[in-house]
Design a binder for these strands. Sequence first.
RNA 1: GCCCCCAUCGUCCAGUGGCCUAGGACGCCGCCCUUUCAAGGCGGUAACACGGGUUCGAAUCCCGUUGGGGGUGCCA
Length: 468
Amino acid sequence: MAAPRLRFAPSPTGYLHVGNARALLFNWLVARRQGGEMLLRIEDTDVDRSRPELTDDILDQIRWLGLEWDGEPVHQSERLHLYAKAADTLLAAGHAYWCDCTSEQVQRRAAERGGPPGYDGHCRDRGLAGGEGTALRFRVPDEGTTSFDDIVRGSVSFDNAKLEDFVLLRSSGIPTFLLANVVDDAEMGITHVVRGDDHVNGTPKYLLIGRTLGLDHHPVFAHLPQLVNEQRKKLSKRRDSVSVAEFRDAGYLPEAMVNYLALLGWGPPDGVEIRPLDEIVELFRLEDVTPSPAFFDVRKLQHVNATYIRALEPDRFVARARPFFAHGQATEHVVAPIAELVRDRVRLLTEVEPMVDFLRDDEVTIDDESWRKHVVKHGERAGAMLDAAIAGLGACDWRADAIEAVLVEAAATAGFVNPEGRPQMSKAQGPVRVAVTGRAVGPPLYESLVVLGRGRTLDRLRAARAAL
RNA sequence: GCCCCCAUCGUCCAGUGGCCUAGGACGCCGCCCUUUCAAGGCGGUAACACGGGUUCGAAUCCCGUUGGGGGUGCCA
């Protein structure tokens, strides 16, 4: 069998969202796996809705995900002549006819009939000539069935009698998706049509057009299950926050995003979910894709993202978090020394800066609740702890181990000890941590103090002591 | 309404007639580790929608019911 050719065919009527990205990924995986190509086709025939700038966004997101296409992107708006020619062929052969019904008329007649909505074939035999206000409709056969084999769904068939005569060319002369899609797939030599299963019902029309046109085009189909929200509804750009750009901006790594997306509707045979893309390429098979809809679970995505972040070398971690620093260099300067410690505590790259701001800023704001629960609650001991810390830290070496020794000693002095008389650092570090970082949670304390510096550490400890 | 689908833990995936007293992952809960928080280790919670068949035997095959989704545009 010749090298497969796949295509990702987004419409620039919206941003690239995770559902598109998943379809893109599956196409890309098949192409890579089988040594074929994945082409990119921009379906911009709807002049009213297509927005050129969205094409740029889509291309940007595809590049960001690292799922690049082969060759030059094809724009349908530049190939209108191909569709016009196909329409002529169908018309000449009597497989299409002109119709001057407005959609209002079509709907009204359907309502009056009380029957199913849709076009009733009103203009089939009227012999109208094309021109102003007329659309070209495909004449669907009255009998027979149109069926196809779908890699994920098995055999699917439709009764032609249930298909309405659909529009090929709008009255503006611009082709619809139905026509352009088939003509292009044939012309581009597409062998695998892998797309969302919202296209299943349109597939018989695709087949009918191709067949009637006499195209030697027999792609295999794979309709991917829908990605749904918590209400089990198809993800919607309006209802759900699903644009790929939003995830990028929220601090997700593209490789984590791609890995997670691969897990929706598919799973590796050995159960190892988080793994390099090249391994997924090797394992992926359309035959293994599940036919049921999958819930897009942001929590699991976060877990995958955190795992990818933790796998980063410390300097790489800092480099990749850098674009998310509002304070740039200043933040980078304080993160770098404790990169590994911070890295293991974040799920998103956007969480890095807020975790270390206390190291960067001159002033620290004390969180009320932390102050109450970790300082005030300990009463006298908290004051004693701060006093001992101030005394000890004023003179020790400024290294993590020396700082630890001082604070352990301070804990014993202040009475933070367990029943066996051992210093109890889980509680003793509280007053110091809150005084210095402003809150109860954060990176490991001793290492943080090293970065903060003796001066600012002592200032903050004294300020807290005074406030007690 | 009509057409096309889907149906295993809360969620994602495994399971393709006996290996299933149903497995892994996320989440959640507990314990351990521990300078907070994470991470890590250990353990736990939790599912074959229902009813009929077929079969020696069904989560796996068939039919029906129920539930859910998608489509039904001069959108894609």
